[in-house]
Design a protein around this nucleic acid. Structure first.
Length: 471
DNA sequence: CTATGTAAACAAC
DNA sequence: GTTGTTTACATAG
């Protein structure tokens, strides 16, 4: 087994990390008059494969000024993990299944955005190099974590270096955090459950510490309960095995928040039901993978949506790999916004699950980080901007200019402004700048159009939200 | 109280 | 048996 270091040493220079907000990409001469060129069919720009797993790989980002975006231009393109770099033909540990389409190099990509957090990258050597996947090889999934990689410190191995010193901290992190890390390092930030298990076996002591399988239960529990993780469908035969789990855009941008989604707010205040569920409502009566196709009891979840500022509206539904356009237009803040557009039960039920809803989206979008330096007012007053977890959605019409040079020239927000349903009054708009999702990235929280706060991501990947409304 | 871990019931593979 | 959802209890802080 080869345990090469996959990273280009030139890329892996931690010391060069300086300011996440001042990466070369952002330092480019910006004028905000450029109309975004949208070439839906430009093959050289992207190669959209309608696939759950490559939707993030197909973007060629050009000079940081414009991008064609198959809607789900992902943070991975600007990855803070540093794992999927242009020109680097290997990524750290993608199981072949995960990558269906060929990975496009990002010509103009910024290589300097390295996470300052060594923890996030220390695991790379654990994974094997692997050849570029055959596109149609969807069924031959083999976990990248071979069981025999007992990485028990084998000094003779050459480069054992299982975990660095700071890794010790990692072990004490909560499950949600660890899962976050696992996914963050994964290609597309997506993994299947078993690989998450394996990641835990390798990189944490949760597994070893417990003789039982409680830790797996906990992982599943967290995956289910924490809004940072979303399910995406697994194409092909493997779909039977379950979903893949992916970090939401919002999680990438904002970090993980607590796993409190459905937890009862007032747990049996009085009457403490000491005895184990004598009168207990059947726990998990609604559980199961049936959620995949039958959206049960959505209504009762809406309370949870409101109470959990981290929740995406349709957690029980597998999230299409990229935005379903209807979904997108209906709820443009599809994740991460506290004031959600809460679809009614019937609406949710109407949102039938479409396994093939990965179609390209008509809108062009550019990452908000491209607007670094632009006054907030300019952005928010743009008639085009619809903030969407790290991206600015643009209408299909490429002729419409984005911004004018002077604020005075800015056309007043028209009625056609695609605002989010709740951004007018009480909605949140998370408008992230900088290296989206990177440690230390900063975002501005808009509340009803007013810039009132700043969020940041701490070293642990947890978002610090000074305005976290706890209800 | 909140955040988290843990156990477990349960449903649908 | 596995995966995913949900409820419930315990406990640390």
């Amino acid at each position: 087994m080869k345990v090469d270091h996959l990273e280009d040493p030139a890329i892996m220079q931690w010391g060069t990390y300086s300011n996440p907000l001042l990466t070369p990409m952002h330092q480019g001469n910006f004028n905000f008059n450029y109309p975004v060129q949208y070439h839906p069919g430009t093959a050289s720009t992207y190669n959209y494969d309608r696939n759950a797993f490559n939707d993030h790989y197909n973007l060629a980002y050009q000079s940081g000024l414009s991008a064609s975006c198959p809607r789900s231009l992902n943070n991975n393109s600007f990855d803070m993990t540093g794992l999927s770099h242009p020109g680097v033909t290997v990524s750290s540990h993608p199981p072949p299944m995960y990558q269906r389409g060929p990975q496009q190099p990002y010509e103009g990509m910024d290589l300097s955005q390295q996470s300052p957090n060594n923890n996030l990258m220390q695991l790379d050597h654990e994974y094997e190099d692997y050849p570029r996947p055959i596109p149609e090889d969807l069924t031959a999934y083999s976990t990248p974590y071979d069981s025999d990689i007992s990485r028990a410190a084998t000094p003779s191995d050459g480069s054992p270096l299982p975990l660095r010193d700071d890794a010790l901290i990692e072990k004490d992190q909560p499950y949600a955090q660890l899962i976050f890390r696992a996914l963050k390092d994964a290609p597309n930030h997506t993994m299947i459950l078993r690989d998450i298990y394996d990641w835990f076996r390798k990189n944490t002591d949760k597994a070893a510490a417990s003789d039982s399988k409680g830790w797996q239960n906990s992982i599943r529990h967290n995956l289910s309960m924490n809004g940072a993780f979303e399910k995406v469908d697994q194409p092909g035969e493997e779909a039977r095995k379950g979903f893949m789990w992916r970090l939401t855009h919002d999680a990438l941008a904002n970090g993980v928040k607590s796993t409190t989604r459905y937890r009862s707010k007032q747990p049996n205040k009085r009457g403490h039901r000491t005895g184990l569920y004598p009168q207990r409502q059947l726990a998990g009566a609604m559980g199961g993978r049936s959620a995949k196709k039958q959206l049960r009891h959505k209504a009762r979840m809406h309370d949870a949506y409101r109470s959990d500022p981290y929740q995406s509206p349709s957690r029980s539904m597998p999230t299409p790999a990229t935005f379903d356009s209807a979904f997108n237009s209906e709820m443009s803040m599809y994740s991460g916004s506290p004031s959600y557009y809460s679809p009614s039960s019937s609406e949710v039920d109407a949102m039938e699950y479409q396994p093939d809803a990965y179609g390209p989206v008509t809108d062009s979008c550019i990452p908000q980080q491209a607007f670094h330096g632009l006054p907030n007012s300019s952005i928010s007053s743009s008639p085009l901007a619809a903030y969407n977890d790290g991206y600015i959605q643009l209408p299909s019409d490429p002729a419409v200019p984005l911004f004018t040079s002077s604020p005075a020239d800015t056309p007043s927000p028209s009625a056609s402004e695609p605002r989010t349903p709740d951004s007018q009054g009480s909605g949140w708009d998370d408008n992230f700048y900088g290296n989206m999702g990177g440690i230390g990235s900063i975002g501005f929280d808009y509340y009803g159009g007013s810039d009132i706060g700043i969020s940041a991501i701490n070293q642990d990947g947890f978002a610090t939200d000074p305005l976290d409304e706890g209800e």
